[in-house]
């Protein structure tokens, strides 16, 4: 039942995660057409329209796993409906076999079918987990870009330690280069996720998680937090600008011209609860800022102010409106 094409694609996905075959992902009937919806605000975040090798490999595995399972699920559903229909009490043609309550052969098959499917999928999971480990390198052209992401209440701070700049709610990266993320949180947990670049990862205070990605095509993508973090959570969307590697140094130079400086003091202001509508940029005063945050030399961000006495705090979420 398993079409050779799928097996081949599967093999491809697991052996060479970064050459995932995008065309196949796009061509799905139902979900593929989802892309047709209007995209007035921001680009879509379609998982089946990957813009980088990690997302491509993720979604190939996703789609192939679905197909592997459909091979047994569809016939089973049909059999359920067919048996239910045929053996209805009002059908005189159906043979009543009350004694058919055990059959070693059927039992064998019944245990074997799901077991074989799971063995196959288990292989996919094992190889996939290793090759698509968030911390695994994703080779790209040019030198890798280091980015230190900090989730604040309720905005994203992106520090470029090598470029000595920092941005809020907008991530600008060169196409084709390996992106090395180090992530932490100023307060509560969040999840860093750019759907079209793939693999999400948690951010946690006092800890650093790692993620490597690559964006292959220039354009605008969108990222978000995928772990609920409080009242301003829905506003933790961020822009991802993928620009040409040639334009990247210019962008860095332009950004560095800003007067705003990110140091412990301005960071402490930034981490107060609230939503950020603009896209502020900073010059980075101290390239070790991220380490100070991650090691809690800068204490975790504060929670909401407690204005009403009884049990119902008023929080920064109000700023959102």
């Amino acid at each position: 039942m398993l079409r050779p094409a799928h097996c081949a694609r599967l093999a491809l996905a697991v052996q060479e995660p970064f050459s995932g075959d995008r065309v196949c992902c796009r061509s799905f009937l139902a979900l593929g057409s989802v892309r047709g919806f209007p995209t007035a605000i921001g680009p879509p975040m379609n998982l089946l329209d990957p813009q980088g090798p990690v997302a491509a490999a993720n979604s190939t595995i996703l789609v192939d796993s679905v197909f592997i399972m459909l091979v047994i699920v569809v016939p089973t559903i049909i059999a359920i409906l067919a048996f239910a229909f045929w053996f209805r009490a009002s059908n005189p043609k159906a043979r009543f076999q009350p004694g058919f309550v055990y059959s070693g052969r059927v039992e064998m098959v019944v245990w074997a079918i799901p077991a074989l499917t799971v063995i196959l999928l288990g292989g996919v999971a094992w190889i996939g987990s290793h090759q698509l480990d968030p911390a695994a390198p994703v080779p790209g052209t040019g030198s890798p870009v280091r980015i230190q992401a900090v989730s604040l209440d309720w905005k994203w701070l992106f520090i470029y330690p090598d470029q000595r700049i920092a941005t809020v709610n907008a991530l600008t990266v060169p196409a084709g280069a390996e992106l090395n993320f180090q992530l932490t949180s100023s307060s509560v947990m969040n999840t860093f996720f750019i759907p079209q670049l793939g693999s999400m990862i948690y951010t946690m205070n006092g800890m650093v998680t790692r993620l490597n990605l690559r964006a292959d095509n220039e354009g605008k993508l969108q990222g978000l937090s995928a772990h609920f973090s409080g009242d301003g959570f829905p506003d933790m969307m961020f822009d991802v600008n993928v620009i040409s590697p040639l334009a990247f140094p210019d962008w860095v130079a332009n950004t560095a011209k800003t007067d705003a400086v990110l140091n412990e003091e301005s960071y402490t202001k930034l981490m107060q609860q609230g939503v950020e509508r603009g896209r502020p940029v900073y010059r980075l005063a101290d390239p070790r800022l991220f380490d100070l945050i991650a090691t809690q030399h800068i204490p975790p961000g504060p929670g909401p102010e407690f204005t009403s006495g009884a049990g119902r705090p008023h929080s920064g979420g109000h700023d959102a409106r």
């Binding site: 059999a79 053996f87 059959s103």
Partner: peptide, 29 residues
């Protein structure tokens, strides 16, 4: 991940056993 999938095996077996319970039955809806 694999351990989680393994749960699907006994679960699948259950589905098939209900299926074969219906097989040869006289089903009242």
């Amino acid at each position: 991940g694999i351990a989680s999938m393994i749960i699907a095996v006994p679960t699948g077996v259950k589905i098939y056993n209900w299926l074969f319970t219906m097989y040869g039955g006289r089903i009242r809806f």
